[in-house]
Amino acid sequence: MKVQPNLRRIKSKLWLFLWVLLGIVAVLPVISMVLEVVIRGLQGLSPVVLDQVSASSFGGNLIHAVAGTIVITLWTAAMSIPIALMVGVYLAEYPNYRFMYVLRGLVTTMADLPAVIGGLFAFSFITKHSGDGAIMFSSIALSFVLMPRLIRDTEQILRTVPSVIREGALSIGATKRQLIFYVLLPSCFRLLVRQWLHGLARVMGETAPLIFTSFNDQALTLPLSTFTFAKGATQGSLLEAWGRSFLLLIFVSILLLVSKQISRRVVR
């Protein structure tokens, strides 16, 4: 009678220990990775290193990559978000047509394809393999990666609105379009914006799709020039690579932080 509670206590202690251990195992790599990126990145961004490397420059300068990342991300947003919103709404709210099944199947498949295929697909649109257009085609490539994911998520988000809310809108004389724009989209707005920001943060760091569309501009975006510098494998160029991934981490963190902030309720 006395042994059993003790045994139970030991057992629960053991479990606790195990959980903590597993927690550490899971968190440690993340923490050490972030630390490494920050420490080495700051080194890599120091003026001395920057000067040295751009003197021997083969990976392009930093401003170019930062600007490329920002512009391409904005273009990707401008192309993917409106279309994804429209198609997502269409899938969620007009489910009655056979065409929808085909479209949904296509979108779900595309959303799970490796990103590199999006790049290849965009590549197939390129007719003239010279001059500029790297920004445009890279944005298109990233849109192919991002859009199917956004469409799928948009549909799922809209489906979370309970049918009793939809019926409430219809019951006071809302048309289908009014239901969508006046009730559904506003009540999903937070979730949608969060999903956009997460998606953009995700594709912002993609390298693979840009292989085809960068027109040999090896420093077109931060991840691409990170890749280029890392391939260089000299002391200086490795530090440059760290510097760039640090900046990328900052950009992604900003997007994710903004998306966290949006959690607060919006009421009209």
Partner: peptide, 8 residues
């Protein structure tokens, strides 16, 4: 009850 959740 199904008031519109985002509205006053």
């Amino acid at each position: 009850p199904n008031p519109f959740p985002t509205m006053t």
